[in-house]
Computed example of a mutant assay.
Amino acid sequence: MTGLRAFLPRAIAARGLQDGSLLLVLALLLAVFSALSDRFFQADNFANLVMQASAVAAAAVGMTLVVMTAGIDLSVGSGMNLALVTAVAVAGAPGEMAYTTQTGWLVYPVALIAGALLGVVNAVLILRLRLSPLIATLGTLTLYRGLALHVTGSNEMLVFGAIRAFGRGVLAFGIGAPVFAVLALALATALFLRHVSLGRFILAVGGAERSARETGLPTGLVMAAVYGFAGLTAALAGLIVVGRVGAINPDLGWQFEFTVITAVVLGGTSLFGGRGSIFGSVIAALVLATVSNGLNLIGANPFVYDVIRGGVLLGAVGLDALSRRGRAGLAAG
Rank of each mutant, 00 (worst) to 15 (best):
L8T: 11
L8P: 13
R10G: 11
L17C: 02
V32E: 06
S34I: 02
S37N: 01
F40G: 00
N48Q: 14
Q52P: 08
A57K: 04
A60G: 07
G62M: 07
G62V: 11
G71D: 10
D73S: 06
L74S: 05
L74A: 08
L74M: 14
A87D: 02
A87E: 01
V88H: 01
A93R: 11
A93Y: 13
Y99K: 13
V107T: 02
N122S: 06
N122L: 05
L131H: 05
S132D: 12
A136Q: 05
T142A: 14
G146M: 04
A148I: 08
V151R: 02
T152Q: 13
T152G: 05
G153E: 12
S154D: 15
L158V: 10
A162V: 07
V179A: 03
V179H: 06
T189C: 11
S197V: 15
L203I: 13
A212Y: 08
R213F: 14
L221S: 12
A225G: 12
G228V: 08
A230Y: 10
T233L: 05
T233A: 01
L236A: 05
V241Y: 02
G243H: 05
A247L: 15
I261S: 05
L266M: 07
G268N: 02
G273S: 08
V282W: 04
V291L: 15
L295H: 04
N296V: 06
L297E: 10
G299F: 03
A300E: 07
A300W: 08
D306S: 09
V312N: 01
V312P: 01
R324Q: 15
R324F: 08
G326N: 12
A332S: 12
A332T: 12
